[in-house]
Deep mutational scan, measured.
Amino acid sequence: SQTQRTQDENEARRIAEEWKRRGYDVEVRNRNGHWEVTWD
């Protein structure tokens, strides 16, 4: 799996939607004030 971090929730949601469209299983988490998008 791969993880991308961002400070911006909207960006995190956009990234998550992009990977979901490509057929990946995606998880979005808030950790210590930043957002992590993990896909595999």
Results as ranks from 00 to 15, higher is better:
Gln7Tyr: 11
Glu17Lys: 04
Asp40Ile: 15
His34Ala: 12
Arg29Ile: 14
Lys20Met: 12
Asn32Ala: 08
Ser1Gly: 12
Gly23Met: 02
Ala16His: 02
Tyr24Val: 06
Ile15Pro: 00
Val37Phe: 02
Gln4Ser: 08
Gln4Ile: 15
Arg29Asp: 04
Arg13Asp: 02
Arg13Gln: 08
Thr3Lys: 09
Gln4Thr: 13
Arg5Glu: 08
Arg21Phe: 05
Arg31His: 13
Gly23Lys: 00
Glu27Asn: 08
Glu18Arg: 06
Ala12Asp: 00
Glu17Tyr: 03
Glu17Asn: 07
Tyr24Ser: 02
Arg22Val: 05
Arg21Glu: 15
Tyr24Arg: 05
Thr6Lys: 03
Gln7Met: 13
Asp40Ser: 15
Ala16Pro: 00
Trp35Leu: 01
Ala16Asn: 02
Gln4His: 15
Glu11Trp: 06
Trp39Ala: 06
Glu27Trp: 05
Asp40Gly: 14
Gln7Val: 11
Ile15Tyr: 03
Glu11Asp: 07
Glu36Met: 04
Asp8Ile: 04
Thr38Ala: 09
Asn32Ser: 07
Arg13Ala: 05
Tyr24Pro: 00
Asn30His: 14
Asn30Asp: 08
Arg22Asn: 09
Gly33Trp: 01
Ser1Ala: 12
Ser1Pro: 14
Glu18Asp: 11
Ser1Asn: 10
Thr6Asp: 04
Glu11Thr: 09
Gln2Ala: 09
Glu9Met: 05
Glu9Val: 06
Gln2His: 14
Glu17Gly: 04
Val37Ser: 00
Glu9Ile: 07
Asp8Tyr: 06
Glu9Asp: 03
Thr6Ala: 14
Val37Lys: 01
Arg22Asp: 08
Gln4Leu: 14
Gln2Glu: 07
Thr6His: 07
Glu18His: 10
Glu18Val: 05
Asp40Phe: 15
Val37Gln: 00
Thr3Arg: 09
Val28Arg: 00
Ala12Val: 03
Arg13Met: 09
Ala16Gln: 05
Gln4Glu: 09
Trp39Ile: 14
Trp35Thr: 01
Arg14Trp: 06
Ala12Tyr: 01
Gly33Pro: 01
Val28Trp: 02
Gln2Met: 11
Trp19Ala: 11
Asn30Ser: 10
Arg22Gly: 06
Val37Glu: 01
Asn30Tyr: 15
Thr3Tyr: 08
Arg13Tyr: 11
Arg22Pro: 01
Ile15Gln: 03
Glu36Tyr: 10
Asp25Phe: 11
Ile15Gly: 00
Ile15Ala: 03
Glu36Ser: 03
Arg22Phe: 07
Glu9Asn: 02
Glu18Tyr: 15
Gln2Tyr: 08
Ile15Trp: 13
Glu11Met: 07
Ala16Ile: 05
Ser1Leu: 13
Arg21Tyr: 06
Asp8Asn: 10
Ala12Met: 03
Thr6Glu: 06
Lys20Asn: 09
Arg21Gly: 14
Gly23Arg: 00
Ala16Asp: 02
Arg21Asn: 14
Gly23Thr: 00
Ala16Leu: 04
Arg22Glu: 10
Asn32Gln: 08
Asp40Pro: 09
Asn30Lys: 13
Val37Ile: 10
Arg22Thr: 03
Glu11Leu: 08
Glu18Phe: 14
His34Leu: 14
Asn30Gly: 06
Thr3Asp: 05
Asn32Asp: 14
Glu18Ala: 06
Glu18Leu: 08
Glu11Ile: 07
Arg21Thr: 12
Glu11His: 07
Arg14Gly: 04
Gly23Asp: 01
Asn10Val: 11
Asp25Asn: 13
Lys20Gln: 13
Gln4Arg: 13
His34Lys: 09
Glu27Gly: 04
Ala16Met: 06
Asn10Leu: 12
Asn32Thr: 03
Ile15Leu: 12
Trp39Asp: 01
Glu18Met: 10
Glu11Asn: 04
Val26Arg: 00
Trp39His: 07
Asp40Leu: 14
Glu9Gln: 06
Arg29Ala: 10
Trp35Ala: 00
Glu17Thr: 03
Asn10Glu: 14
Asn32Leu: 07
Arg14Leu: 08
Trp35Val: 01
Glu11Gly: 03
Thr38Met: 10
Gln2Val: 12
Trp39Leu: 08
Glu11Cys: 12
Trp39Met: 09
Gly33Arg: 02
His34Asp: 08
Arg5Trp: 13
Arg21Trp: 04
Arg31Val: 15
Arg5Tyr: 14
Asp8Pro: 02
Tyr24Phe: 12
Glu17His: 03
Thr6Met: 09
Glu9Phe: 08
Arg31Thr: 12
Gln4Pro: 04
Val37Trp: 01
Trp35Asp: 00
Gly23His: 03
Arg13Ile: 09
Trp35Lys: 00
Glu18Ile: 08
Asp40Thr: 15
Asn10His: 11
Ile15Lys: 04
Val37His: 00
Val37Asp: 00
Gln7Leu: 13
Asn10Lys: 12
Glu17Leu: 05
Glu11Tyr: 05
His34Ile: 15
Asp8Arg: 04
Lys20Pro: 02
Tyr24Asn: 02
Arg14His: 05
Glu27Ala: 10
Arg14Asn: 06
Gln2Arg: 14
Asn32Tyr: 06
Glu27Tyr: 07
Arg21Met: 10
Arg5Asp: 06
Asn30Met: 14
Asp25Lys: 11
Arg14Tyr: 05
Ala16Tyr: 08
Trp19Asn: 05
Val26Gln: 00
Gly33His: 03
Thr38Glu: 07
Asp25Ala: 09
Lys20His: 10
Val26Trp: 01
Arg14Ser: 08
Asp25Tyr: 11
Trp39Arg: 11
Arg29Ser: 11
Arg5Lys: 11
Asn10Thr: 12
Val26Leu: 02
Val28Gln: 01
Asn30Thr: 08
His34Asn: 09
Arg5His: 11
Asp40Cys: 15
Asn32His: 07
Ala12Gly: 02
Gly33Val: 01
Tyr24Thr: 02
Lys20Phe: 12
